[in-house]
Design a protein around this nucleic acid. Structure first.
Length: 403
RNA sequence: GCGUCGGUGGCAGAGUGGUCAAUUGCAUCAGACUGUAAAUCUGACGACCUUUGGUCUACGCAGGUUCAAAUCCUGCCCGGCGCACCA
């Protein structure tokens, strides 16, 4: 062991209250609980692993639950270890096999990681965390070793994994390669000597695979922590393609608004998983409180985690002004046109409507309003002769100035 | 490779020669109502126009049959499943 490892002796907190919080809040499953508790109380610095694919994209607040959990570990003094799945990203997940994923170039991966670090940095101190590329070791494995790794699982074991089983029953193909994926992820754990690995509940099998592989390599087995899955703002699974996500890069206004538009039933879940409020505070925030007020409270709490305090207030005021009082938001887009320009053309140019037909529909439905007079503009051939501010539907606004 | 079923609007999934710009569900959008961009109800949901109507483009791609095709035929491309290939 080199001298450098003694350079910064990390002080590890064994605060029982905090440990309890880590192991229960927003947690779906802990495996093995006793072992993990013991480890955390031992005062030894633990290596907490989280893998991610460098495919780019924004981190949403469902994913942020994981990161916030990591942060809790980091706060206790433990080591956060990120595995950049550059290898697994390329060959790993064949579930979307309609189109073969384009191979990510080295530069693209680097760029994505930089971006990822920037985003993660909003939650975690990345300077204290380790980053490893799993191609470093996975690309060097030979068939000999892969075969040995494969020996650690039986086909029956793999087949009983729920999402494989489902597909067998439905008659949907499961490729052999998919069987290999847990092996790779597990091997990552061996390489970084993970004490703990965390992931979403859907990752349970892969996480546990790490234990099996570590055991094979005569390493102490990692304990596994799975996080509850956060539902999207509409109650469905959170997914980029559904558009029901809140990302940690959203502006305060976007975040606030999206949180306000969540279903009432999701309130307790969001409070528990997305804020730092204690259980008692959450109970207080919900008990007998008007859902709208509770939601505003939630929105303030969440926005404050990712944005400065002042912008929280601003976002709230903006929301009240725009939606509760029917006003105009701060950042209303503006256009300047010649007098006599057709309204339909202006809106089309401003991309507020996708076609003239859409404009026609909106106008006929009374969805295009002059904000000052509250009058709906129903004439589809309306021509603009003076400066006006329009509200189209509930959340599209445009200020039109005349040259 | 052989067989078989299939490729339809953002998605799922009807439709098997005219009444199809295409049922329905989800998503989306609007209106009403409200507690908010929630819930509920109502409506809209290819584009363009001189708009009780008209025109164009669209049901994997390319042709063909027909007065008429998402629907029938031929070829091609892509996908699911079964069989074979191993034992």
């Amino acid at each position: 062991m080199s001298l450098f490892s003694f350079k910064s002796k990390q002080i590890i907190s064994t605060d029982k209250q905090k440990i309890h919080e880590i192991l229960t809040r927003g947690i779906e499953d802990v495996f093995v609980k006793e072992s993990l508790e013991k480890k955390l109380l031992s005062g030894k610095q633990l290596r907490v692993k989280l893998g991610f694919d460098p495919t780019g994209g924004r981190i949403h607040i469902g994913r942020a639950i994981l990161l916030r959990k990591l942060k809790a570990f980091q706060d206790l003094g433990h080591k956060v270890v990120f595995i950049v799945g550059d290898f697994t990203a390329q060959i790993g997940d064949p579930s979307d096999k309609i189109e073969k994923r384009p191979m990510l170039t080295r530069e693209k991966i680097e760029e994505n990681i930089k971006d990822y670090k920037r985003q993660v940095g909003k939650i975690i101190d990345v300077s204290k965390a380790e980053f490893h590329f799993n191609s470093t070791w996975l690309s060097k494995l030979g068939f000999q070793e892969i075969a040995e790794l494969a020996e650690t699982f039986s086909v029956q074991q793999m087949s009983s994994r729920r999402n494989f089983k489902d597909r067998f029953e439905k008659g949907v193909e499961v490729s052999l390669r998919e069987f290999l994926y847990p092996l790779m992820q597990g091997y990552d754990s061996v390489q970084v000597k993970a004490d703990i690995e965390i992931g979403g509940f859907d990752q349970l099998f892969n996480l546990k695979a790490g234990r099996i592989i570590q055991k094979y390599y005569k390493q102490p087995e990692q304990d596994v922590l799975t996080i509850q899955m956060l539902e999207g703002t509409d109650g469905r699974k959170m997914s980029t393609s559904w558009g029901n996500i809140i990302t940690i890069l959203d502006t305060p206004e976007e975040m606030y608004g999206k949180l306000m538009s969540t279903k009432d039933e999701l309130l307790p879940q969001y409070f528990l998983l997305c804020t730092d409020l204690s259980k008692e505070e959450i109970t207080k925030a919900l008990d007998g409180v008007h859902p709208k007020e509770a939601k505003m409270h939630l929105a303030r709490e969440v926005v404050a985690l990712y944005h400065p305090r002042e912008s929280v207030q601003k976002a709230e005021q903006d929301f009240i002004k725009t939606f509760s009082k029917g006003g105009v938001p701060e950042n209303t887009p503006e256009v300047t046109v010649e007098a006599g320009t057709k309204l339909s053309d202006i809106l089309l140019d401003a991309k507020l409507v996708s076609s003239k037909t859409e404009f026609k529909r909106l106008a006929e439905e009374g969805g295009v309003k002059n904000i000052e007079t509250e009058k709906a503009l129903t004439d589809i051939h309306e021509v603009v002769t003076e400066s006006i501010t329009l509200k189209i539907g509930k959340r599209r606004f445009l200020k039109i100035n005349i040259k």
